[in-house]
């Protein structure tokens, strides 16, 4: 094991983890503003408010850290970390360029990634429970229910890609990728991306943090740095879900001059998906809690099963 090599990879993963979510956040500020006929942040940093999130970070770091008197102190304080760290772990397994362009090749890639992604929700559950606040508790439970509903279609859609490629390794999937897979797996792609949105509690699936019903759900009692870490987790989640959709369904680094420009294609496709995430937030009203459950069980799960059947038939017919 080359110590320097591993060290560099760790550093690169941490850098990506800290920079990409901020880029998505700033893009969200600006894109939302322009879609709503505003200009968004313009002051911080001078040029079109590019330093707005840096300024936010400085503000968060200076704020008092209030733990409610009735709260379960330790669990309350630990929750943001539990929500955040899984996304860092997932990032290391996502390939971004051909020929070793990945933090670490993991043979059971899809499996590892989906398993670790599920852990992040524990952070919201912990926060919701430990806050000793009725609204937080409701928000935490809604988060949990949402994970239960959407993890299944996500798993099934990912399994369909694994069937197509004949491997569960993310690098292996990209190695086997061919362009006609995009239309072939398109149902799975939509299911996966939608389920990902729901797991991140992004609009229109943001009932767990619905401000008009339950204040801010599990995060109601959080202030300062801990609140900032929850926000960072949300945006890191967007990066991870978009990158995974790219790798599984859109061919990852595949594109013209992939040998040299592979990482550009990965970033570009991820960025386009992140834009769609913001776009959906601006254009779609929030689904009601029961509607969220119904969409998952009566639309996404059957669609995912259909995709698996389609994948299986096409693959076996091609083989023979």
């Amino acid at each position: 094991m080359d110590v320097l090599d591993v060290g560099l990879r760790l550093l690169a993963v941490l850098a990506a983890f800290l920079v990409l979510p901020l880029l998505v956040g700033q893009t969200e500020h600006k894109v939302m503003a322009h879609m709503q006929g505003r200009v968004g942040p313009m002051y911080a940093g001078g040029f079109h408010g590019w330093a707005q999130l840096v300024a936010d970070g400085v503000k968060f770091a200076q704020k008092e850290d209030v733990v409610p008197a009735g709260a379960d102190r330790r669990v309350f304080q630990l929750a943001p970390a539990v929500a955040l760290v899984p996304y860092l772990l997932v990032l290391v397994a996502i390939p971004f360029a051909p020929g070793g362009g990945v933090g670490q090749v993991i043979d059971a890639g899809i499996f590892f990634v989906l398993a670790v992604l599920g852990v992040g929700v524990l952070g919201s559950l912990m926060g919701g429970w430990a806050s000793a606040n009725k609204f937080s508790l409701l928000g935490g439970l809604r988060t949990g229910a949402q994970l239960l509903a959407y993890e299944l279609p996500m798993l099934l859609a990912a399994a369909s890609v694994a069937m197509a490629a004949g491997t569960v390794s993310l690098t292996g999937i990209l190695g086997a990728f061919e362009w006609w897979w995009v239309p072939w797996q398109i149902i799975g792609a939509v299911v996966f991306f939608t389920a990902g949105l729901a797991e991140l509690q992004r609009p229109p699936f943001d009932a767990p943090v619905a401000d008009s019903e339950i204040i801010f759900g599990a995060y109601t009692e959080y202030t300062g740095l801990r609140f900032a870490l929850f926000l960072l987790a949300e945006y890191a989640g967007i990066v991870v879900i978009c990158a995974l959709t790219t790798v599984l369904f859109l061919g990852g680094w595949h594109g013209p001059y992939a040998e040299d420009l592979g990482w550009v294609w990965t970033l570009l496709k991820t960025a386009v998906l992140a834009f769609v995430v913001v776009w959906l937030r601006v254009t779609h009203p929030r689904l009601r809690e029961d509607q969220i459950q119904r969409v998952a069980w009566t639309a996404l799960v059957p669609l995912a099963l259909l995709q698996i059947a389609l994948t299986g038939v096409v693959k076996v017919v091609l083989q023979s």
């Binding site: 772990l89 290391v92 670490q104 993991i106």
Partner: peptide, 20 residues
């Protein structure tokens, strides 16, 4: 492979600890 993943977890915990 999983040793590196473990190291990333350590980096994550360190990051949170330093931030807090």
């Amino acid at each position: 492979g999983y040793a590196v993943v473990g190291l990333v977890a350590v980096v994550g915990v360190l990051f949170v600890a330093v931030a807090f």
